[in-house]
């Protein structure tokens, strides 16, 4: 494995961490339009908190996919063809919630608005659930042949670990979204978000324990990398504990940051367990390795140069755009 291969493996992880940190709260706000909002005014205020950001946040996913294609084409090809139906349904969810922002603002009838609000909520719930499912199913050892073709059946996609993983990611996104709402809105909705998020942390802890046990049973993480896996699990629990403490103590900013980092550290846990593989086959000889799956050294070099130039510029205006919209959204009465 070359240094550039390792770098790009880490960079893909970073892009997914960015995606879950950012789009994670978008998903959470989308779910909150049902579980938190009581009427359309509430919903409008909630949507306003992510209105300027959701599109840019989603680009992290597109960039992660593109970067995976560029740096590890074999990984990209096997993963995307192997998770055909899950990814297709994820796309449907992303499409419906993506257009719902514009369409609900243009809908004039109550029925039209209701339809697009539901699309937003369902899309925002289903997308993180399916992505969580995909990431927790692909660490279990897939029926993959030596060409990297994955012939996964339903039960490879849908099983105990992947369902728990999907639910955990969805729940974390909701918590993260509620923390974001507490930061970005004032009045009644802010208080209600506080009350709800406090309860959800207890469910999250239960979920994390179950997840850790299932990880031990269903994956080879504890066999392959016992110490780092254990440390990362401790980190995940510690971060969610800090996040919960902040939620109770009304340190809204830190609560938000730590719930995002919790999501991020789950991504680290998965990538750490995958390493040095990118896809785990049920027959270890067929597993796809970092050293075999990558693009040529020349392409990696070009992409590294490009990323070094473009990433800082992109991050600068990306962060600037959050600075522009740092004020709270006016809540409905």
């Amino acid at each position: 494995m070359s240094a550039l291969q390792l770098l790009w493996f880490i960079l893909i992880a970073v892009l997914f961490i960015g995606f879950f940190f950012l789009e994670g709260f978008d998903f959470g706000v989308g779910m909150a339009t049902r579980v938190l909002a009581k009427n359309d005014d509430d919903r409008e205020s909630l949507i306003a908190t992510i209105g300027p950001h959701w599109d840019g946040n989603e680009v992290w996913l597109i960039t992660a996919g593109g970067a995976m294609f560029a740096s590890f084409p074999l990984w990209y090809a096997s993963l995307f063809s192997g998770y055909y139906i899950l990814l297709f349904l994820t796309l449907c969810a992303l499409i419906f919630r993506g257009v719902s922002f514009e369409f609900s603002a243009n809908a004039e009838t109550a029925g039209g608005r209701r339809f697009w609000y539901w699309a937003l909520c369902i899309g925002s719930t289903v997308a993180p659930f399916l992505l969580g499912m995909m990431f927790t199913s692909l660490i279990q050892g897939l029926p993959m042949d030596k060409n990297g073709d994955i012939f996964a059946g339903l039960w490879d996609n849908v099983n105990l670990l992947s369902i728990v993983g999907g639910v955990a990611v969805t729940l974390l996104c909701l918590i993260h979204g509620l923390n974001f709402i507490r930061l970005k809105i004032d009045g009644n909705l802010r208080d209600r978000a506080r009350n709800l998020v406090e309860k959800l942390y207890w469910v999250l802890f239960a979920g994390e324990v179950v997840f850790a046990i299932l990880l031990f049973i269903f994956t080879d993480f504890f066999k392959e990398r016992p110490i780092s896996t254990l440390l990362l699990l401790v980190l995940i629990v510690a971060l969610s504990a800090i996040s919960m403490y902040c939620a109770y103590a009304d340190h809204e900013g830190w609560g938000f940051i730590t719930s995002g980092l919790t999501l991020g550290s789950i991504v680290i846990l998965l990538f750490n367990g995958l390493f040095p593989r990118v896809l785990i086959a049920d027959n270890p000889a067929h597993s796809l390795l970092i050293k075999d799956a990558s693009a040529s050294p020349y392409t990696l070099k070009i992409m590294t140069i490009v990323a070094c130039i473009l990433l800082p510029i992109m991050l600068a205006y990306f962060i600037w755009s959050f600075f522009i919209f740092k004020r709270r959204v006016k809540a409905s009465a």
Partner: peptide, 27 residues
């Protein structure tokens, strides 16, 4: 698989350069 070494790079650059730019500034 066949084209990845060539085809992925422009896609990734498109996302990094163009998609971020248009989505952030339109917001």
């Amino acid at each position: 698989r066949f084209m990845g070494d060539i085809f992925g790079a422009p896609l990734a650059i498109e996302a990094l350069l163009a998609f971020f730019m248009e989505s952030v500034f339109i917001g």
